[in-house]
Computed example of a mutant assay.
Amino acid sequence: MKEETRLIQNILSDPLTGAITTPIYQTSTYVQEAPGVHKGYDYTRTNNPTRKILEKIITDLEKGYKSLAFSSGLASVDAVLKLLENGDEIVAVDDIYGGTYRLLNLYKKLGIHTKFVDTTHSENIISILSPKTKMIWLESPTNPTLKISDIKHISESSKKVYPNIMIVVDNTFATPALQNPIILGADMVIHSATKYIAGHSDVLAGLITVKNPDFYEKLKYIQNSTGGILSPFDSWLTIRGCQTLYLRIKKQSDNAFKIALFLLKEKSHLIDKIYYPGLYQHKNHTIAAKQQLSFGGIVSFSLKNDTIENAKKVVTSTKYFKLAESLGGTKSLICHPATMTHKSTPLEVRRKTGIQDSLIRLSFGIENSEDLLEDINNVLQ
């Protein structure tokens, strides 16, 4: 059975009524036969049938042991960070998502410190590992400069030094339709399911898939204790989005590749750098081609006149690309990371990691590529 078929067929019809779509179990509590005697559900913070179906879907997609659904991507990040203790260290990708960067800074107050490195070179990670290093945090591709890390090599190399180190991969950009980090050696995979997995810009959701029962039991305890669960309705919306994941990501990747080629070929007097791992010119193209089935729906580029003002002129002049936070929906979006998604990242950190003042991020939807190309071309004339 092919993956696209498996995804659809594994979303079973309701055995009670035969309903072809997953029911929304919009309930907070459940009747018990006796104290502690029930059908597997006692309180929706702990378990919910709709959420459980979503968690099974993402587990199958990511080829893991089990999954947990949270109220947002950052809620899932927070749960993973709660696995650490005072004095522990994290080695993380340097151009990490701004929201994760902000959260890691909060954890400094609890004595959990992060070392940021360019993870596209595995030796940068291995060289700074110490007994205090308990977690390696990767994004591949990264947000927004689309750097690629060799997940398999990093996992194998680091575990040779410290077998118990946790490898966490934020797989939001690639999605399980293009990449399976657990197969490549990761212990945990995180998604802001708000993006590609839910896919319609109408829900906030976070997902964690784990490799083994120990991680699951610890994270399940954290989830139940802190209460950042995904609601039944949002679980249902995310299930609905999952069903078209393969269709959407194929179209979005095709659109992104076509526009990236256009930008490269027709490089105007305005454009400086183009970031897309599908281009042979991308410094990590070979690794991306090895561990991804395709190259995703995000393209970033910077301007030769590298100022925030010039970037704002571009992002406010498009017709079909809508200026907005987020990505991965059916509508194409345009974003200026320096003043939007990464505004909480200090200026010196942004510039050091390649997030230029003029960097612009395009998130491709499922529109006709010729219309999108015309839109970009008109702005860059």
Rank of each mutant, 00 (worst) to 15 (best):
T307A: 04
A186I: 04
G36R: 09
K115F: 06
M188D: 00
V379S: 11
K63E: 13
K273R: 13
S300P: 04
S363I: 09
L146Y: 08
S326T: 11
T194Y: 01
T46M: 09
S157T: 12
R361A: 10
L279V: 07
A186E: 03
K39H: 10
E3N: 12
S326P: 01
K267N: 11
A260F: 08
A260K: 07
I274P: 06
T353I: 03
Y43C: 02
T316I: 02
I271Q: 04
A260H: 06
T21F: 13
Q26E: 13
T339N: 09
T238H: 01
C335E: 15
P163Q: 10
E89Y: 03
E123V: 12
L380P: 00
F262N: 09
V314K: 03
L362Y: 05
H200E: 10
D118K: 10
N47M: 08
G40C: 08
K218F: 07
N180L: 07
T120Y: 06
E85I: 04
A311L: 04
K134H: 06
A34T: 06
S140M: 07
L184E: 11
I53H: 00
D202Q: 07
S225V: 10
Y30N: 06
I182A: 02
Y41S: 01
Y25D: 12
N305E: 12
A69R: 01
Q223R: 15
S155D: 07
I128Q: 05
S28T: 14
I154A: 07
Y275P: 03
V315H: 08
I112C: 06
L323E: 06
K134R: 14
L261G: 05
K312S: 11
E123W: 10
N212M: 06
I8T: 12
S300K: 04
Y25A: 11
A256R: 10
I148M: 03
D234H: 15
V37N: 07
G329N: 06
T238I: 08
R240P: 00
S302P: 00
N47H: 13
Y107P: 01
I183A: 08
S149P: 05
K82H: 13
A174S: 15
F233E: 11
T21I: 14
K160A: 13
P23V: 09
H342V: 05
L247E: 15
K132G: 03
S302N: 06
Y246C: 04
A338V: 15
A288P: 02
K251I: 15
N47Y: 13
I287S: 08
N378V: 12
G354R: 07
L54F: 09
T175A: 11
R6T: 14
T316P: 00
S317Y: 04
I154L: 02
K108I: 11
T244Q: 13
I167T: 10
I151L: 04
V379I: 15
D254V: 11
D375V: 08
I249E: 13
N378R: 15
L74P: 00
T133E: 01
N310M: 12
S149R: 03
A186S: 14
R240N: 11
L184K: 03
M1L: 11
Q381H: 15
L247I: 15
N164C: 01
L61E: 10
I58Q: 07
T29L: 07
S158D: 02
H342E: 08
S369V: 15
S235E: 01
A79L: 03
A198L: 02
K265P: 00
G228D: 14
L347F: 14
T316C: 05
